[in-house]
Design a protein around this nucleic acid. Sequence first.
DNA 1: CCCGAAACGGACTTCTCCTTCCACTTTATA
DNA 2: TATAAAGTGGAAGGAGAAGTCCGTTTCGGG
Lengths: 191, 191
Amino acid sequence: MTATTEKPMRADARRNREKVIEAARAEFASEGQDAQMPDIAKRAGVGVGTVYRHFPTKEALVEALVRDHFSRIADLAEAAVDAEGEPWDRFISLATICGERCASDRGLAAAVAGSREILGVIAEQETRLRAATTRLIEEGRATGQVREDATVEDVSMLMCSLACIADMENTRPDFSWRRYVEVAFEGMRAR
Amino acid sequence: MTATTEKPMRADARRNREKVIEAARAEFASEGQDAQMPDIAKRAGVGVGTVYRHFPTKEALVEALVRDHFSRIADLAEAAVDAEGEPWDRFISLATICGERCASDRGLAAAVAGSREILGVIAEQETRLRAATTRLIEEGRATGQVREDATVEDVSMLMCSLACIADMENTRPDFSWRRYVEVAFEGMRAR
DNA sequence: CCCGAAACGGACTTCTCCTTCCACTTTATA
DNA sequence: TATAAAGTGGAAGGAGAAGTCCGTTTCGGG
C-alpha cells in the first residue's frame, strides 16, 4: 500500500536527514516536548531551512520519530514471539528491551499520550504490536505462567506506563524503570 | 511555618477565585498541558484580568492546582493508614481513590512529569505521602500480604503510572485505570 | 571540468499566546 | 446612601517560537 516512489536522494541530503533525526531525538530527550526547531538545527549542525526541507513542520518531525520508535518496538515484540525460552521469560525480556528503547527515546511517551492525532500515525505498528503481544500472552496462559484473565490491553497499559516511568527518570532520580518492570509486570503472572 | 496573614477577601473575589480554579481544572483536563489562559477565563465567565489578579502567572495557577491535588491525595493516604481492615485492602482502596482523583484532575500528571520546578511545590505533600505510604506497606509486609522487598519508591512509581494511565483514557478508550489497578498493583502482593 | 539541479543557511516574517494596563463596576463600611 | 477601596474586563502590548524565502553552496552526470 502507498508504494512510496523511490527517488534517489543526494548523498549530503541523506546524511543531513539522519543528523536531524538524531539531533531531534536527543533534543526531545533532554528538553521534553517543547524542544525548539532552531535548537534541533543547531545540534544537528545545519540551518533551520534544512530541517524544514526534510520535515515540513515540527509535527511531521515528531511523527517520524514516533513512527520509527514504534516500528522498532514492534520488531522487538515480533522477535520475542519467535525467540527461545519460556513464554514468561520472553515477556519480561521484551519489557526490558522496550524499557531500554523508551529510556533512549525519552520525550516520545508524552508526544503519544498528548495528542489524539498521533495515534493514527502509529496505527500500523500498533497492529503488529498487538498481534505479537496477543500470541505471547496466549502462550503464557497456555503454560500457566500468565494470569488467566490477561488481555492485550493490559500489556498495552503496562508498556505505556513503563514508557512514562522511563520518561520520568529525567526529573525523578528515585525512579527506575528496571525496578518498575520487576514490580508492575509481576502483576501479570499467574498465581 | 509561613503563617499566611489572614486577609479577608471580598465575597465576589472569593467566588471568582473558585470559579477560576474550577475552570482551570476542567480546561487542563480537556485541553491538556497547553490550555490557554483566555479560554480558562472564558470558561470561568470572567475576564483574563481577573484570572491574573488571583494568579500572577499561568505557572502559579498550575502550581495551585497541583498543590491542591497532592494535598488531597496526601490526606487520602493518611486516612488509609488509620482506616479499618486488612493492610492490603486499604492499600488497594487507596490506589482506587487516587485513581478517581487523577481521573478528575486529568492533565496534572503531565505537569508534574514535565517540569523539574514543580517538584519543589509538592515537596511538603510528598513528604506526608511518603510517610503514610511507608507505614502502609510496612503493615502489609508485617502481615505477609505485601512482598518483602517492597519500597516506598515502588508505590510512588505505581501511583505516578496510575496517574499517567488515567490521563491517557482521554485519548485511548481501550485503557482503564481501574483495570490497571487490578493488574499492576497486584505485583506488590507477596507470593 | 562544467553546469544545472538539488540542497543549504539563516535573517526575517508571522502567528500564537501570556501578560499588562486602566477605565469602569462592585462591595463593604460609616 | 455616599465613599473609598477592592475587584473586574478585555483591548492592546510584547516575547518567543514556528515557518518562509532566496542568495549562496554543493553534488553528480555528461
